[in-house]
Design a protein around this nucleic acid. Structure first.
Length: 265
DNA sequence: AATCCACGCAACCGCCGAATT
DNA sequence: AAATTCGGCGGTTGCGTGGAT
């Protein structure tokens, strides 16, 4: 499909934003609201591409952004969510109010991935950090993750890049010769490295029920504020992850639509 | 004091799916 | 139905900074 490349236009400012540009962008968005990023620069009088404006706003200028000083609780939550979701930074960020996907991605790449590497080889403990990083979910990657000759019918709600975790569970069932499991206990498949809880898939009703195990809650409640009481039954992934519930800081990230479930049939 | 190097972070790039034409 | 546009995401790059030599 033909598509003009963003930011290809010559003469646009690139690189670090100036205070003046920030001011113009904030002022414009305060007056006119977000959106229409493609035409925003022109309307606002910014010599930037729309994507650049969007990125600047979402990651740095938006109200409520927290910068730096990632707490231990936030860090643990990042690690846990990364173990569950892989490199789904926007989803992870949606669980950390005030944090952006870019910041979490950077934090992971600079800090946590190193720590993960250091602890690699120490065996699979109860901590996901001790587990090798899951392969980054790639577009269409779920298909190749399935055994040959296996057809899959993913519930593809929005994101193609998928939850490797759930697929891994499905794979495990395939290996057990169960073509169409009625119930998938993800915890069994994932081992205690991911003590997220058990996942029940009712394929007939395409209903999901989750029994959650305790998440370590921190002093500020980051770890458990969205997940309900331990053992409580949630209504699905959305509640499990707190996606779309309480807005996750209202940044528009996350949501059940971002998740994909796959099963073998 | 000067240079080198490693690290962290901000920003860019390319791709994708959804929405629109 | 096909083409195009838009918004969004994750991976990667490159610059600035601080520490080591």
């Amino acid at each position: 499909m033909g598509r003009k490349p963003c930011c290809a236009k010559e003469g646009l400012n690139r690189g670090a934003w100036t205070a003046m540009e920030d001011e113009i962008l904030v002022s414009y968005i305060n007056d006119h609201g977000e959106g229409k990023w493609g035409s925003l620069p022109k309307r606002a009088g910014l010599n930037r591409c729309g994507k650049s404006c969007r990125l600047r706003w979402l990651n740095y200028l938006r109200p409520g952004i927290k910068r730096g000083n990632i707490s231990d609780d936030e860090e643990e939550l990042i690690v846990r969510l990364h173990g569950l979701l892989g490199n789904r930074w926007s989803l992870i960020a949606g669980r950390l109010p005030g944090r952006t996907d870019n910041e979490i991605k950077n934090y992971w790449n600079t800090t946590l991935s190193k720590r993960n590497q250091q602890s690699h080889g120490a065996g699979c403990s109860n901590h996901p950090q001790a587990k090798p990083l899951p392969p980054a979910p790639q577009a269409g990657g779920e298909a190749q993750a399935l055994p040959e000759g296996t057809s899959s019918s993913p519930i593809r709600t929005k994101a193609l890049r998928c939850t490797t975790t759930v697929l891994a569970a499905a794979e495990g069932f395939h290996e057990q010769g169960r073509a169409a499991p009625e119930h998938v206990a993800a915890e069994d498949q994932l081992g205690d490295c991911l003590s997220i809880g058990s996942i029940d898939l009712d394929l007939e009703g395409i209903e999901l029920g989750f029994m959650m195990s305790p998440w370590s809650g921190g002093a500020d409640g980051v770890g458990d504020q969205h997940f309900g009481a331990p053992g409580a039954e949630a209504d699905g992934l959305e509640e499990l992850l707190g996606l779309g519930v309480a807005g996750g800081g209202g940044d528009g990230h996350g949501g059940l639509g971002d998740l994909e479930l796959a099963w073998l049939c």
